[in-house]
């Protein structure tokens, strides 16, 4: 029951993030949408790993742990590149 509820929430989060990623043009908004999209995938994985009475499955936990770090690094790289683009355009 809890697995279904939380897994469904993960799918909804992914759909919301995808919609916002396609609709908005500014960089920071796209980054927020991308992060929420990734959070939906992580949420689904964690919900799958939860197994009621048994202790949870560790492999999806490790995957999500790596994914969080990669997502933040990608965000920082995108912000730095956007800043460089702004400076090259010279305030347009």
């Amino acid at each position: 029951m809890a697995q279904l509820l939380y897994g469904g929430a993960g799918v909804v989060l992914f759909a919301l993030g995808l919609w916002a990623f396609l609709v908005y043009t500014p960089l920071l908004r796209k980054l927020i949408a991308l992060n929420i999209m990734g959070s939906g995938v992580f949420h689904l994985l964690i919900a799958i790993a939860e197994r009621g009475e048994l202790p949870p499955d560790p492999v999806p936990h490790a995957l999500v742990l790596t994914g969080i770090v990669v997502a933040v690094s990608a965000t920082a790289l995108a912000l730095a590149m956007g800043r460089r683009l702004e400076e090259d355009e010279g305030g347009r």
Partner: peptide, 19 residues
């Protein structure tokens, strides 16, 4: 709540804090 304290720790420190 889903019994993944290690992942929650990483998300709070890195995802919410640093990001």
């Amino acid at each position: 709540r889903l019994r993944a304290p290690d992942v929650a720790l990483a998300e709070a420190a890195i995802g919410a804090g640093l990001g």
